[in-house]
Design a protein around this nucleic acid. Structure first.
Length: 406
DNA sequence: TCTGGGGTCCTAGGACCC
DNA sequence: TCTGGGGTCCTAGGACCC
């Protein structure tokens, strides 16, 4: 059976979805037709462009750049705040709509998915006709446009959906790779970021076609074992399957950029505690245990640091995670001003094989487990902020969002 | 009031074992 | 009696993605 994969990608997702939200609420015009962006809060140092309208894109505004810089390019720029809960709703509706046609859907991010069309082709006919149909249906039912890429594998489907926007359908079948992909700049290739693009340019590789024809031995000194993978990507080779069952999370993390740089322990402790509470709670929600605790910092110069520790026994206890987090913070931080703190749990498992150590009794541990269980139930029942450790109550309450972003 | 947050994967070096 | 080499685990950092 011929493989036919579709990649469906919401155009300017956050901006489109906010546009729909605003129109629903009676906002006078469609922000998709104006110079507009979705941007973070500058007063809390989150002032970057999260999504842009086609007009904003046209004058050179890019996702990820500072609002400060975007405003310089367009003084009349309208900036709207993100609404993550709404985005999640719209995202769920999109995937729900697509699920009517097949269950072979791989959710790739909040606004993208792959669909294994080859398996249902007999039911719905020519790929292009089907793509047009769902594109129209998404517009009619949900009110936003999508790009659709059609190809023989996921990589090419993804590349195709990116060709020209918005509201377009492109094919990139095997027979079209040379013609449609080889002339594109190397930075357009999925998997080639800024750093790799720079290295490749220095090697005289400017287009995807250049990379497709490159010799592994010439790349090896610069890309090591990734060399062959890069050449495969450039040739549009990808054998990965559409995986519809959501894979288990490999880790859980929560980080926050501080409103101002912090250089003393008293200020950092409650923040680390709050982040730890969040990740530990999420861990228990997922009925998991973590072996590895990792603390991340970013300093005023944007340099990142991280220290991690593998525990003897996987844990889901806030108390144990917090102790480790403090240990890690102390060993890596000497008080230089930092702008970001994060906690990450890694190497998750479904079981705890806890060995009680010499220094604790079974009773102590069971008491801890029971206590945290009770606290969790109270939080579920009365809301997230009801219970907290005393140290947090004395400091400013920090509320962290757990939303995924575009 | 210039630079988010949540992820995955890879690499390289050191420790340790045989 | 002057230092191999393969394997595995752990850690820190980096690249890339949305």
């Amino acid at each position: 059976m011929e493989r036919i994969i579709m990649h469906i990608d919401v155009n300017n997702a956050f901006l489109s979805w906010s546009a729909v939200d605003l129109l629903n609420k009676g906002y006078g015009y469609d922000i998709r037709d104006s110079y507009a962006v979705i941007g973070g809060d500058e007063t809390t140092r989150r002032g970057i462009v999260l999504a842009k309208s086609p007009l904003a894109k046209k004058i050179g505004i890019q996702t990820g750049e500072t609002l400060y810089s975007a405003r310089k390019k367009c003084p009349a720029l309208r900036i709207f705040p993100p609404n993550y809960l709404w985005y999640q709703e719209m995202s769920a509706k999109l995937f729900e709509l697509l699920s009517k046609y097949t269950c072979d859907i791989e959710v790739f991010s909040i606004d993208e998915c792959f669909l294994d069309y080859g398996k249902v082709k007999n039911l719905y006919g020519k790929p292009m006709d089907f793509a047009k149909k769902i594109q129209k249906e998404i517009w009619n039912v949900l009110g936003f446009t999508v790009n659709i890429g059609i190809a023989n594998n996921k990589l090419c489907a993804k590349m195709a959906s990116d060709f020209s926007k918005p509201n377009k359908i492109h094919t990139l079948y095997e027979s079209e790779i040379k013609e449609k992909m080889f002339s594109l700049p190397i930075s357009d290739l999925f998997g080639v970021g800024k750093k790799s693009a720079e290295k490749l340019l220095k090697l005289g590789i400017q287009t995807i076609g250049d990379l497709a024809h490159a010799k592994g031995e010439n790349l090896y000194p610069y890309f090591k074992n990734q060399s062959m993978k890069l050449i495969e990507l450039a040739n549009g080779i990808d054998t990965s399957e559409v995986i519809s069952i959501k894979e288990e999370n490999k880790g859980i993390s929560n980080s926050t950029t501080l409103e101002h740089d912090i250089s003393n322990r008293a200020e950092i402790h409650p923040i680390l505690e709050s982040l730890t509470n969040n990740v530990a709670l999420e861990l228990r929600r997922q009925n998991k245990y973590a072996y590895v605790v990792c603390v991340q910092l970013k300093d005023q110069y944007f340099k990142s640091y991280s220290h991690q520790k593998k525990l003897k026994n996987a844990t889901n206890l806030t108390k144990e995670i917090l102790e480790t987090a403090f240990l890690l913070l102390n060993e890596m931080w000497e008080g230089i001003p930092i702008r970001l703190v994060g906690v990450r749990l890694d190497h998750l498992t479904n079981q705890s094989h806890h060995q009680v150590s010499l220094f604790e009794t079974i009773e102590q541990r069971e008491h801890d487990v029971q206590l945290e269980h009770t606290l969790d139930s109270l939080k579920e029942k009365y809301g997230f902020n009801v219970i907290d450790n005393a140290s947090l109550l004395s400091s400013k309450r920090i509320v962290f969002k757990n939303a995924k972003h575009e």
